[in-house]
Measured scan of single mutants.
Amino acid sequence: KVLVLALYDYQEKSPREVTMKKGDILTLLNSTNKDWWKVEVNGRQGFVPAAYVKVL
């Protein structure tokens, strides 16, 4: 399983997205889209901007 680090806070803007806080460790589920990556955080799955996270 691939983990990513949240570099910035992100507030979800649609039901398909998830909120994350800077420093959160998320599970990367899909990174085929260069702009939006699907992650799991706190038991929820959704998209975050790829530029806001870094693969650990």
Rank of each mutant, 00 (worst) to 15 (best):
L29H: 06
V41A: 15
V41S: 15
K22S: 09
M20E: 00
W36V: 03
F47R: 04
K34H: 13
Y52S: 07
K54M: 15
V55Y: 11
L56G: 03
Q11P: 06
P15G: 13
R44H: 11
E40N: 06
L26Q: 01
V18M: 15
L28C: 05
L5Y: 15
V2F: 10
P15V: 12
G46A: 03
V48W: 00
D35L: 13
A50K: 08
T27K: 07
Y8N: 10
V2Q: 09
Y10S: 01
Q45M: 15
R16D: 14
L5V: 12
T27Q: 13
W37H: 03
K21A: 10
V4Q: 01
V39H: 00
V4M: 07
Y8A: 12
N33P: 05
V18Y: 05
Y8R: 12
G43T: 07
V41G: 10
V48M: 01
G23A: 03
N42F: 13
W36Q: 03
L28E: 00
Y8E: 11
A50H: 04
Y52L: 11
A50Y: 02
V2M: 12
V53C: 09
Q11C: 07
N33V: 06
G23K: 02
D9H: 07
A51R: 13
W36E: 05
A51P: 11
K22W: 04
G23H: 06
Q11W: 15
M20H: 01
N33G: 14
V18R: 02
L5D: 01
T19D: 04
F47V: 07
L26H: 03
N42I: 06
K13H: 14
R44T: 08
V53R: 00
E12T: 10
F47A: 03
Q11D: 15
E17F: 08
E12F: 06
A51G: 09
P15D: 12
N42M: 13
T27A: 08
R44N: 08
R16K: 12
V55K: 08
T19V: 03
M20F: 12
V48R: 00
L5P: 00
S31P: 10
L3Q: 10
V39R: 00
L7M: 10
A50R: 14
K1I: 12
P15A: 14
D35K: 13
G43I: 04
N33E: 14
L29K: 05
S31M: 11
K34C: 08
L5Q: 12
A6C: 08
L26N: 01
V53M: 06
D24S: 08
K21M: 11
P49E: 01
Y8I: 12
D9R: 03
R44D: 05
T27M: 13
A51Q: 12
D35Q: 13
V55C: 07
K54G: 10
E12S: 13
W37F: 09
K13R: 14
V39L: 04
V55N: 06
E17R: 04
L29A: 03
T32Y: 13
R44A: 08
K21H: 11
G43D: 09
K34Y: 09
F47P: 01
T32S: 12
A6N: 01
V55H: 07
T32K: 13
K13P: 05
Y8W: 15
D24W: 13
L56P: 03
G43A: 08
S14A: 11
A50W: 02
L28F: 03
T27D: 07
Q45G: 09
D35R: 11
K54T: 14
S31W: 13
V53L: 12
D9K: 03
T19Y: 04
A50G: 05
L26K: 00
K13F: 06
P15H: 15
E12I: 07
V55W: 06
L28I: 05
G43V: 05
S31I: 09
Y10K: 01
M20T: 03
V39S: 00
F47I: 08
P49S: 02
T32I: 11
D24L: 05
G23Y: 06
E12K: 15
V55F: 13
Q11A: 15
T27I: 12
L29W: 07
Q45E: 14
R16M: 15
D24T: 09
A6T: 04
L56V: 08
G23W: 06
K13E: 12
V4R: 01
Q11E: 15
V2H: 14
T19I: 03
K38Q: 15
L28K: 02
M20W: 01
Q45L: 10
F47K: 03
E12C: 09
K54Q: 13
G43L: 07
I25V: 13
L26G: 12
W36F: 09
A50F: 03
W37L: 06
V53A: 03
N33D: 15
L26Y: 13
T27N: 09
V48P: 00
E40V: 07
K38P: 01
K13Q: 15
V39E: 00
Y10N: 01
F47M: 09
G23S: 03
F47G: 01
G43S: 09
K38F: 14
V39Q: 00
G46M: 05
S14E: 07
K38M: 15
K13N: 11
I25G: 02
G23T: 02
T27Y: 13
N30F: 09
Q11K: 13
G43P: 02
A51T: 15
K22D: 02
N33Y: 09
E40Q: 10
V55Q: 07
R44F: 07
Y10L: 01
V48F: 01
T27F: 12
F47W: 14
W37K: 02
V55M: 14
P49R: 04
V39A: 02
A50E: 03
D24H: 05
K13V: 10
N33F: 10
E40H: 06
V18H: 04
V48Y: 00
V53N: 01
E17G: 11
L29E: 04
W36M: 07
K34S: 14
K13L: 14
V39G: 00
E40I: 07
R16Q: 14
L29N: 03
T27C: 08
G43C: 10
Y10R: 03
Y8C: 08
V55S: 06
V4A: 13
A51F: 09
Y52D: 04
L28R: 02
D35N: 09
L7Y: 04
K21L: 10
S14K: 06
D24V: 04
K54H: 14
D9Q: 04
D9N: 11
N30T: 09
D9I: 02
R44Y: 07
P15T: 09
Y8V: 12
S14W: 07
D9W: 04
K22V: 10
S31C: 13
K54C: 12
Q45R: 12
D9F: 04
K21V: 10
V41N: 10
V4C: 10
A6H: 00
S14L: 08
V53W: 01
T19E: 04
V4P: 00
K21F: 14
A6S: 05
W36H: 04
L7N: 03
I25D: 01
L3A: 06
L7K: 05
L3D: 04
A6L: 02
D9L: 02
K1D: 14
E12W: 06
V48G: 00
V55G: 04
F47Y: 12
W37Q: 02
M20N: 00
M20P: 00
Y10I: 01
Y8F: 13
V41I: 15
L3V: 11
V18D: 00
N30I: 09
K22C: 07
K22N: 05
L5G: 03
N30V: 10
E17T: 10
K21G: 05
P49L: 04
K54Y: 15
T19H: 04
V41W: 10
L29T: 05
Y8S: 09
L7A: 04
R16I: 15
V4Y: 09
D24C: 05
K22P: 03
K1L: 14
G46W: 03
K13M: 15
D35C: 11
N30P: 03
E40A: 09
L3R: 09
K13I: 11
A6P: 01
D35M: 15
K1F: 14
E17C: 06
T19M: 04
P49H: 02
F47H: 06
K21P: 01
Q11M: 14
K54L: 15
